[in-house]
Write a protein that binds this DNA or RNA. Sequence first.
DNA 1: TACTGAAGTCACCGGTTAGTGACTTCAGGC
DNA 2: GCCTGAAGTCACTAACCGGTGACTTCAGTA
Lengths: 208, 208
Amino acid sequence: MSRPTERDRDATRARLLDAAAQVLSRKGYSDFGVNAVAREAGCDKVLIYRYFGGLEGLAQALGERLDVWLRLDLPLAPGGYGMVMGGLLGGYLQALRANGLVKRILAWELVDTGPTVRALGAAKSRAVSAWFQRARAQAAPPPADLDAPAINAILLAAAHHLALREDHDGTFAGLDLTQPDTWRRIETAMDLLIARAYPAAAEDRRHD
Amino acid sequence: MSRPTERDRDATRARLLDAAAQVLSRKGYSDFGVNAVAREAGCDKVLIYRYFGGLEGLAQALGERLDVWLRLDLPLAPGGYGMVMGGLLGGYLQALRANGLVKRILAWELVDTGPTVRALGAAKSRAVSAWFQRARAQAAPPPADLDAPAINAILLAAAHHLALREDHDGTFAGLDLTQPDTWRRIETAMDLLIARAYPAAAEDRRHD
DNA sequence: TACTGAAGTCACCGGTTAGTGACTTCAGGC
DNA sequence: GCCTGAAGTCACTAACCGGTGACTTCAGTA
């Protein structure tokens, strides 16, 4: 009846990639397999082997498309190091929360070390670090007396973990992550932590 | 040859619980099943159904033993709210890093919502929150002008995420989590964040 | 028009899983 | 000493997985 098969190799490849993203972001990594992806794409699983060399190759191709989905073209807020970092982290948190696929990959990385998730994680890590690199190049240098990498890693880890907990059971440490107001509180608290860790006075002195 | 079966129901129950903890903390949650646990315990899987009603009941019983493993009898550091929170968080981070089982469960919670992990997570959450409640009761109240729950949740989330990344690929945001020195830097940065978020001056004023 | 090769389908294989029924083995009460 | 019931073992089913070989169907081309 329906004619999903037009014998178009590129179209089928694209359908498989879309299906892989769908399965991964909706069902999670444990359901991410050749059977489920092929079922979602409406074609036979053998095509995954023919076109991608297997599930690992499909994940690799999916990772190479990640930079498209993780497009983080946030305008950089002007100001000192603390202001820039605050804007960066807030934007990243919002982008992450809205990106179910990236969240699934982040969670997957925490429970598996297989080649499939490695291919995905490497591609994602490349895209994100390039973005941070580019953003940092436009910002003022951090105060020399602080361990900025450690501080930023802590805040980034918090953003990751809270975003991951959000679409799991929606609670963390007594906070209700399903309420928008909770996220406003979190962003305010993050801004406060950053503002007090990177006081503006230390930065102003650099502007002399 | 070996006589592991002494027809002792309680001993077999305990063996199954130990085996469940072993499998979960060593192999991870994806290998956590009736077959693997029974194999580890050296008995038949049917006993899991007979004694625990299935894998879910076994996980429930395991969760009820979690308070034993998560024994956090850290002495509370004296001082203001910030000092107490800093000591609390540092101790929690160290205890968490040393506890592979709890880390596995935390990661499991991020990728699965099935009844088995829910039973575990609920029991763990109960134990941890009771401990935090008890610790907070002995500390000074937080500064009223700050959103202490949000700030603490951020730092706790960071501790969770960094601990989980440690025994995965050992890197996060450019930090090498396999180096003890990196963890010293992280603890120092956490202390700095807490100290500046909860300045001692605001607390001293409460002591009048 | 006939052929060739690629696109796509189907059926199977071996392996693993959860779960169940039937069986044997033993210990304690009478 | 026997008998009942529980502890433990074994074998099996049904369903799923990843992976593969054989097949059909179609499009472009000579």
